[in-house]
């Protein structure tokens, strides 16, 4: 739902980085999208060309990497990867005392810049 504003935030932050790091153009941007991030990958893809126009990101290749949910169980100390992101409990002991270790993130991993 807030995909446009998230991409607009990259444009701003990566624009600042371009000045600091001295690059003019981004060739590719690699992004992790967690299953619980609330971000819709197709929405990002759809708005990316328009929102990045006239910025260092214009024309860059967008590479989205989907990340599933990883839970750490506070009770049995096992790590589980529920297939259903809406099942936030340990698949071994069914405890809900779990920590979400992966799946919430929406972050830029790296950039290929020129």
């Amino acid at each position: 739902m807030h995909e446009v504003s998230l991409v607009a935030a990259w444009v701003e932050q990566i624009g600042e980085l371009a000045q600091k790091e001295g690059f003019d153009r981004v060739l590719a941007v690699r992004v992790k999208v967690g299953a619980l991030s609330g971000v819709d990958p197709s929405c990002i893809e759809f708005c990316f060309p328009e929102v990045t126009r006239n910025s260092v990101l214009e024309g860059s290749k967008l590479i989205l990497e989907y990340v599933g949910v990883e839970l750490y169980c506070d009770l049995c100390h096992k790590i589980s990867f529920p297939e259903d992101p809406s099942a936030i409990f340990c698949i071994y002991c069914h405890s809900g005392e779990v920590v979400i270790r992966q799946g919430k993130e929406f972050k830029v991993i790296d950039l290929d810049v020129l």
Partner: peptide, 16 residues
Amino acid sequence: VEVPRKLRLEQFVLAK
């Protein structure tokens, strides 16, 4: 002759 370089950004979009 400029070659592309890779910048690693362990930076959340939400970092700010």
